[in-house]
Design a protein around this nucleic acid. Structure first.
Lengths: 226, 226
DNA sequence: GATCTGGATATTATATACAAAATCGAAACG
DNA sequence: CGTTTCGATTTTGTATATAATATCCAGATC
């Protein structure tokens, strides 16, 4: 057979991770999509983007494949790629799954997180509240993303982390819209208060149910704007 | 996570789907991995496979990117690809997530499936039982995969379908092992009986819990063989 | 003997060239 | 007028060529 050299990275932790051009391009385009520079449904013109990014077609096209597998774009053979446009039904289906997964995240986090990690979450929460009180929307939003990602990490389940991140990426813009009105935002914040309280007391079932509700509410909040 | 494109498809339903070389290669290699021809942890020698498949490097490498995004292989920059080898912890994490998702699938299927669809599942189940009774393992296994995929489809949630398929693909060989001994197999079958009974009476919570248990048991059954 | 160094060899990454489709528009036709 | 057909143009798909990087092994050094 082939050589048994393990994929258990023999790399040094500090070794500078060499990033291939492909990965850079993928990240770059991913950001363009997530930030809405490339609008949903819009065609991706290879030549334009190509010259803009200053790379050749090979790494660029490879990165398109990656993004397609991630569900951010759609490639139609011989007819080019476009930024994936989510139908309301698809958005709903993602939120339905995400809500359910966050339920699991909540339960596992309560079981598995260390005291220090919980403390870290409390701190993060406090910073979010500060931004809320100063109505500083963008930084709040960023911390919110981090809040959910970190909680996922506390579940100790790498698959959960990966899938949550993927769905989160696909929904990023939409979730941002979810805090559109002052009332919506206030509701979201109070749900976060509940989460923190449940996490602090390691009440898995309660955290689980709050998180599910939180996402379901996001759907309510977002629904109209589709 | 592959996604049959279906964007604003202006395609005729009957239009022959033109498959790009890339996709063919991806499917081909995916099968090689899933069927274990390419063993976990083994290095993927580009030149060898290349000549074997009779395609040039461009589509081949693109397909590797796809498979990497699907989590079936690992690409280390400048150092080649290898078939992803799952640690017991990773397998456990996938089964934990899958169990939870199948719980959701069970509940939603009971709410949303049509009578005809449920009938179809009963029929599928009957065929599985026949193969079980004749101890025809491979066909049983295939129908089992189909059973779970179809149930996912009955949830009416495309995201759920996609993610379930992805995890299923990653775990395919392992799940096969799950029915290794006669007792294991018998247990799995009796769990299926329960599922069918719950589905027939549209008892969402019950189906949900049986399905979760089914997967957790798979973990128990498989654990030693890692 | 063990580790280090340098360069030959093999492998991967990127760029470019070429081929095959699809798109678009103008002219021909009904 | 509207539809169809054909070809020029653009865009995509695949192959190959070149550059960059890693791997491996022999010889040098301690």
């Amino acid at each position: 057979m082939t050589d048994p050299d393990m994929q258990t990275d023999t790399d040094h932790p500090l070794a500078v991770r060499k990033e291939t051009l492909h990965d850079q391009v993928a990240s770059r385009v991913r950001d363009l999509i997530i930030e809405g520079v490339l609008e949903p449904g819009s065609r991706i013109d290879e030549t334009t983007l190509l010259s803009q990014l200053g790379v050749s077609r090979t790494p660029f096209r490879e990165s398109l494949r990656t993004l397609a597998a991630e569900g951010l774009i759609v490639i139609r053979p011989s007819r080019g790629s476009q930024v994936r446009k989510l139908s309301p039904l698809e958005v709903h289906s993602m939120l339905e799954v995400l809500a359910h997964l966050e339920g699991l995240i909540g339960r596992l986090a309560c079981e598995r997180a260390s005291d220090a990690e919980i403390k870290g979450m409390l701190d993060l929460h406090r910073r979010m509240i500060a931004f809320y009180e100063s109505r500083n929307r963008l930084p709040y939003y960023k911390l919110n993303q981090e809040f959910h990602s970190r909680l996922a990490a506390l579940s100790g389940n790498p698959t959960l982390v990966e899938i949550q991140a993927n769905i989160q990426a696909r929904l990023k813009r939409i979730r941002f819209m979810g805090n559109a009105t002052p009332e919506h935002w206030a509701n979201a914040v109070s749900e976060h208060e509940e989460m923190i309280s449940a996490l602090k007391s390691r009440d898995g079932p309660r955290l689980s149910s709050v998180m599910e509700r939180h996402l379901v509410n996001t759907w309510e909040r977002v629904q109209d704007s589709l």
